[in-house]
Computed example of a mutant assay.
Amino acid sequence: MQNSSISKITLEGREFLVKRDDLIDPFLAGNKYRKLYALLQTPDNKYSKIISYGGTQSNAMLAIAAMCHKKKWKFVYYTKPVSKSQKEQKRGNYFYSLNFGMEHIEIEEELYRDFIASLRVNSDEKTFIIDQGGANTSAKEGLGVLAEEIRAEMLDVKSVATPSGTGTTALFLALALPEFKVYTTPCIGNTTYLKEQMSALGDIPSNLIILEPKKKYHFAKPYREFYTIYKKLQEAGIKFDLLYAPAMFEALLNQVDEEVLYIHSGGVSGNESMLKRYEQKFSL
């Protein structure tokens, strides 16, 4: 795959550069492509099965499903119980992942945590386990490639931004780009949770700056201010996801003054189901 291009947008009178990782692939794109880069380079015969877990809105789930379809690996994905309406949807990440051959297994909520903790106990050498959101040390290689692409552009900008779920992308990008400021904001849980997730993968460097959200946001819940930013970004010429990008741009607009290179996280395939929820909640 070729290096992703860089675009420029204007949002509320501010200029932002955007690293177009969303254009790498329709399903295997954005930071999930970077996280899965090492596995994509792995010979097809090294593994026969990939296991992961998390939520059914997950962009990582879809990216892993697309990768496994490409590599002809079995993909097993564990979640807590899913609603009947979710299972019947004919759009969104869950639907597309099933079409890629994902085997979905539901675990009762009271058993879920212990079950996930035991996944590696009976694992064999042909099975690779990817933690929720792609939070694995193997992601470091792909973020190193991204860092080299950014350096090769010889930009005047010395600040980059990427939103965080587990913080894997932000952490490894900051480690690979010590001469840059790397801004992020927690989109799942709070700052304390984000730091805990990142610390499990490595030491948090001083150039990684976590921007505190202006209020507590619940992941995947519709917020009118997020939809407003999403529409403004769309009008600026680029489609972004509804789960991560609005939170990151809101933090940048309110807390950062310098010009920033935003790393597009991809994930726009999940907008189909999210927009439906926004329409229902706000009568759009």
Score class of each variant (00 low, 15 high):
1 M>H: 14
1 M>F: 13
4 S>N: 12
8 K>C: 07
10 T>V: 13
11 L>H: 01
11 L>F: 01
12 E>M: 05
13 G>C: 11
14 R>Q: 06
15 E>H: 11
16 F>Q: 00
17 L>C: 06
17 L>V: 08
17 L>W: 00
18 V>K: 06
21 D>Y: 13
22 D>E: 15
24 I>T: 15
29 A>P: 00
33 Y>C: 11
33 Y>R: 10
35 K>P: 00
38 A>M: 13
39 L>Q: 07
41 Q>L: 15
43 P>T: 09
48 S>K: 15
48 S>T: 15
49 K>L: 14
51 I>V: 15
52 S>E: 06
63 A>N: 10
63 A>Y: 01
65 A>V: 11
68 C>Y: 01
68 C>R: 04
72 K>W: 03
74 K>D: 12
76 V>H: 11
77 Y>E: 08
80 K>Y: 00
80 K>Q: 15
80 K>H: 05
88 E>N: 14
92 G>T: 03
92 G>L: 02
93 N>P: 12
94 Y>A: 03
95 F>T: 02
99 N>S: 12
100 F>N: 09
102 M>P: 00
105 I>H: 13
110 E>A: 12
112 Y>T: 09
116 I>S: 07
117 A>D: 14
118 S>G: 12
122 N>T: 15
123 S>M: 15
124 D>M: 12
127 T>C: 14
128 F>I: 15
129 I>L: 15
132 Q>P: 03
134 G>T: 10
137 T>D: 12
139 A>E: 06
140 K>F: 04
141 E>A: 05
143 L>N: 06
144 G>R: 10
145 V>Q: 08
148 E>A: 12
149 E>M: 13
151 R>C: 08
152 A>M: 13
154 M>K: 13
156 D>K: 11
159 S>M: 02
166 T>Y: 01
166 T>R: 02
167 G>S: 10
175 L>E: 04
178 P>Y: 10
179 E>K: 11
179 E>Q: 14
179 E>M: 09
182 V>Y: 01
185 T>F: 00
189 G>N: 02
191 T>P: 00
191 T>L: 02
191 T>E: 08
192 T>W: 04
192 T>Y: 07
195 K>M: 07
197 Q>C: 05
198 M>V: 09
202 G>I: 05
205 P>D: 02
206 S>F: 08
207 N>F: 07
208 L>C: 05
209 I>D: 06
210 I>F: 02
211 L>A: 01
213 P>L: 07
213 P>R: 06
213 P>Y: 04
214 K>A: 10
214 K>D: 15
215 K>D: 03
216 K>E: 12
218 H>I: 15
219 F>E: 11
223 Y>I: 04
223 Y>R: 07
232 K>G: 11
233 L>M: 14
235 E>H: 05
237 G>N: 13
239 K>H: 09
243 L>N: 00
243 L>G: 01
244 Y>A: 04
253 L>T: 03
255 Q>Y: 09
255 Q>D: 09
259 E>M: 12
259 E>Y: 08
260 V>S: 01
267 G>E: 03
267 G>P: 10
269 S>H: 09
271 N>M: 07
274 M>S: 05
275 L>H: 03
276 K>Y: 07
279 E>L: 05
279 E>S: 06
280 Q>V: 10
280 Q>A: 14
281 K>N: 05
282 F>S: 09
283 S>T: 10
284 L>H: 04
